[in-house]
Design a protein around this nucleic acid. Sequence first.
DNA 1: ATACAGAGGATTGTATACAATGTAGTCTTT
DNA 2: AAAGACTACATTGTATACAATCCTCTGTAT
Lengths: 224, 224
Amino acid sequence: MSDNQTLAEKVFSELATAIVRGEIRPGERLSEQALVDRYGGSRAPMREAIQKLEARNLVVRVPHAGARVVSLSLEELRDIYEVRLELESMACRLAAERMTDGEVAALQELLLEHARTIEADQGQSYYQKSGNLDFHFRIIEGSKNRRLHQMLCGDLYHIIRMYRYQTSTSSKRPQQALGEHQRIVEAIAARDAELAELLMRRHIQASLTNLEQRMVRESTESGI
Amino acid sequence: MSDNQTLAEKVFSELATAIVRGEIRPGERLSEQALVDRYGGSRAPMREAIQKLEARNLVVRVPHAGARVVSLSLEELRDIYEVRLELESMACRLAAERMTDGEVAALQELLLEHARTIEADQGQSYYQKSGNLDFHFRIIEGSKNRRLHQMLCGDLYHIIRMYRYQTSTSSKRPQQALGEHQRIVEAIAARDAELAELLMRRHIQASLTNLEQRMVRESTESGI
DNA sequence: ATACAGAGGATTGTATACAATGTAGTCTTT
DNA sequence: AAAGACTACATTGTATACAATCCTCTGTAT
């Protein structure tokens, strides 16, 4: 019953979380033999796990040379954020058109809970972690576009989380982000798709500009 | 020198083109042993080729049950087109901002060539095949966003081509499509990003609505 | 001292063999 | 006759062994 999934899948998910959490650093090499020593089994499942990681853009593989954890340049990170900005804005527009009334009500309830949590918690830990993601997840699912969901949650999500720019951005201003979230939900509840898209675009744009500032800071810091 | 790429990569690209061309039909099963019999080698490279196909969403694999060529429902196809519509419109906006003057000039030259070809050829074969794709490719590359390029050309392109809706759509009206292309390039040359995005959005929207009509037709035909 | 060449080792790509799981076909039972 | 269970087969998942490629370290020559 616990052995329902294959060894390759187990190793894949373990490695994926390890990479996202930074326990395996960008640029670090993934030797197949080393994975065998660590997780047991043989090289075949390890190879398969590495290939799955490559499919999600978490590692880069070159023939005969091995696999390394992806190490994104600042330009590549900007590219990813640009795409995410566009796709999530799109998701928000579609969500305004396609979410059921019940889903909208649940979303409003979620924000009320967030508001309570921020008040009690000073908005430190809870909101920026599961709360923020939960909000965005629900919007994406509300788009009722499975491919969009797959691209945002499967392909882009891991990399974005890996670099932590999203969370570190919103940690500065949880109450402001909450206000933006509330206005987005208002637009969705009013079925105003254009406005909902616009507000989401601005909301994520704040993260992007914050990211770009951070990029400049870090590059000058490390460059000197 | 010819053996530079691995066997897995060769089998992958052969299978990918075979699937896209329809030589292997949607839903058809891909047995590892059958691939060994056809392409030679052993099961290991065949497995790897299948995994690469899965990474590009060309096949679906279920543990212990094998791999099948993806068979998209009408809803999934609509989802893909929706995403493509959004991403290519975005690419067009970015291209208007980021293409060099030389690239814009080359694009204008390309359209002139297309116009000549249509006049000579009645716009039957050439334009809808390489010409149309070439135009869209250049726009995407002009966005200077490599992730966007990867998503559109790598992930979505194969599936879209597999179902041929794009080509069959534009074959009806090559001269009209050319006119739309020309207006798009005009907007890019004028560095009017908003207009360029809008025009591209309308241009692809035509394909999408045509696709939806075709979807309804086919579903009613096969449903009776 | 530096740059280049070569040999050795380490790692990946491929092949083969075995184990585990899914599938189909038949037989039994209701 | 239809439904369900059991058995045999086929296919995938995994393990091990071999081949090909690349990386590194050392030694030599400039």
